[in-house]
Design a protein around this nucleic acid. Structure first.
Lengths: 351, 351
DNA sequence: CTGAAAGCGCTAACAG
DNA sequence: CTGTTAGCGCTTTCAG
């Protein structure tokens, strides 16, 4: 058939969504005019605009962002990919990005990779299908080839963990410097046998931290005892096991560097199991500060990371890239400094 | 002009996205066939499917989810609205929902209301524009009328905080019962002067907790001393100020119920400032357990909430509602029980 | 100042 | 087994 009256039900589900056209016919106007009025286009009379806005309100019109983004070719959406949203490091990123999205009229798609490269790849694929304007990513230790390739075609910013294979700017903390500071502090207190418990060196963060630990020794013309270094997942359980074992050795360390706050939880528990007094029997320090470390008895010496500043910087960098898409293709790498908070958990060794 | 060859650049931005049609022409097929092949439609020969899949891969085809969702009238997306993503209560919800979304092939839109009802309303509006299939919400204390009305038109599940004005199922913890348990524990230890520090009673959670505290007294034919109750925001600063002041009174309480873990941080700091020994000078309990409370010295008596179970239940409930849209319109209200963990921070009062 | 018409990429009738 | 056609709701030329 050539011609016919417009049909009643709109889409397969027969859902009764109010569209621009509905507003238009209710007012005897064209849907074009309605669209323009709602976008406050200058060539529409104030009178008409008022009428249209009122009708839109009355009919309960809700713009369809899918339709809009299909026309315009991009969506007002950004993606965030994190290994674990319950970790304070990544939830800080989520908060900053969410704040900025609110201010800029963007929506935030949250993807959790659970540190699984295959999952990460799937999530990025999904974000590409949603035509996100950009992605903030805390990548897994071993991203797949496809992940790296897809990220190259997206506007992305790396946060906390940064891999050279992934293009684009990054915002990280100087893990090497932070660990050097705190390790140097222990060396200068007179400690010889210093243990290290941290996350896997496959992670860019774990790598940097262990490197900082070693460099602090090197700078003093000393060598760290590799037998006192332990690597594992960022869990209290691992912290407990590793520290329990280290403290059980006959040549137990006189000081411990714990390179993750989650590991620190288990570590402290292990010191109690061995009935070790801090700092008289053992000095202990944490990488990344927390409220509870500050009020612990004794208060724990820790390296404080400017997490919120970093997250805000990463989010802003992403939006800069989104807004001035062509320019600033420079691969900026922003590095933040941490601050050593010396508290009562560290002192000179007993002798 | 009436007729013309197909144009080169597709959309305003001239972006070079590969579409179904591009695959079709590259193979001399129709775009319909391509669509069907990629959806593994049964009426397409294996041969053609293979060819098409290969071409799609080679050309770097990425399906456009906006176009798809426009056709089908719904998006494979759910929304999550939380006051604060850095709070463990809400990040637990985010994790569970993200997990389930991954399994079900949905995307997760994260919205942070910062406990501001106007922001909450804006966020819900944005989720409606995205045509989300459902929403998991931890509502603010005083949602706007529009918020309530819009939620009524969405498939929604309330988490942790539940308001009767908002329709739909909810997943909460029995705050009243939890506070009763822990308060009764203190009363039975012999405490007469018991203080309470918690979040505002305007929040459904704050209301329930304060109610539980009072009911524990009522059940014992006692009356709580209203002069020892303090309400404020869930911050360490408030906890510090409130507890510092309570401990400075001449008739200081012999026990304290701290109804939020954030408040607990400041509370413990305040006990140290007053040089109060736990539990000999003061018994103290926390509502909601944490790893650090468990390993504190002395270990802190706390009410443990089954957060992860609750979050998983809420996420599942939402997907049930999404999948069987018509049925199960019953307003289920799931309530979880908490568990009292008695530790060393509580004992009978001194005298 | 307003309208007509085209088309974004995709799916789903309905024909062959 | 494959193609034709129409249209989801919206923005955007181009013509009045």
């Amino acid at each position: 058939m050539i011609c016919g009256v417009p049909k009643k039900r709109r889409n397969p589900q027969g859902s009764q969504e109010v569209t621009l056209r509905d507003i238009a016919v209710s007012l005897g106007l064209s849907h074009t005019t309605v669209s323009r009025a709602l976008h406050d286009h200058p060539h529409i009379s104030q009178n008409t605009k008022a009428q249209i806005r009122q009708a839109a309100e009355k009919l309960g019109y809700v713009p369809n962002s899918a339709a809009r983004s299909m026309r315009s070719g991009h969506s007002q959406t950004v993606g965030l990919i994190v290994p674990d949203i319950e970790n304070e490091f990544y939830s800080a990123a989520a908060r900053s990005l969410a704040d900025l999205c609110g201010a800029e009229g963007f929506r935030l798609l949250l993807a959790v990779s659970r540190d699984d490269p295959r999952e990460e790849e799937r999530q990025i694929q999904a974000l590409r299908e949603a035509r996100v304007a950009g992605v903030l990513i805390c990548a897994t230790a071993k991203p797949t080839r496809d992940t790296i390739q897809m990220l190259g075609q997206l506007r992305s910013v790396q946060f906390l963990r940064a891999y050279a294979a992934i293009s684009g700017p990054s915002v990280t903390v100087d893990d090497v410097g932070g660990l050097m500071k705190v390790t140097t502090h222990l060396i200068e207190l007179g400690h010889k046998r210093i243990g290290y418990v941290g996350v896997s060196e496959e992670l860019s963060t774990g790598k940097g931290r262990a490197t900082g630990f070693r460099q602090a020794f090197k700078a003093k013309k000393l060598v760290p005892d590799a037998a006192l270094m332990r690597f594992g997942p960022a869990t209290p359980d691992f912290g407990h096991a590793a520290v329990y074992e280290l403290l059980g050795r006959t040549d137990r360390p006189s000081a411990l560097v714990i390179a993750s706050p989650r590991i620190m939880l288990g570590a402290l528990e292990a010191t109690e199991a061995h009935d070790v007094e801090i700092p008289s029997d053992l000095s202990i320090v944490s990488y990344s500060d927390s409220d509870w470390l500050r009020i612990w008895r004794p208060p724990i010496t820790a390296v404080a990371l400017p997490l919120n500043q970093m997250a805000a910087a990463a989010a802003e960098l992403l939006f800069q890239r989104i807004e001035h898409s062509t320019q600033s293709q420079t691969t900026e790498a922003l590095t933040f400094e941490s601050v050593l908070q010396v508290r009562a958990s560290t002192s000179s060794p007993a002798t």
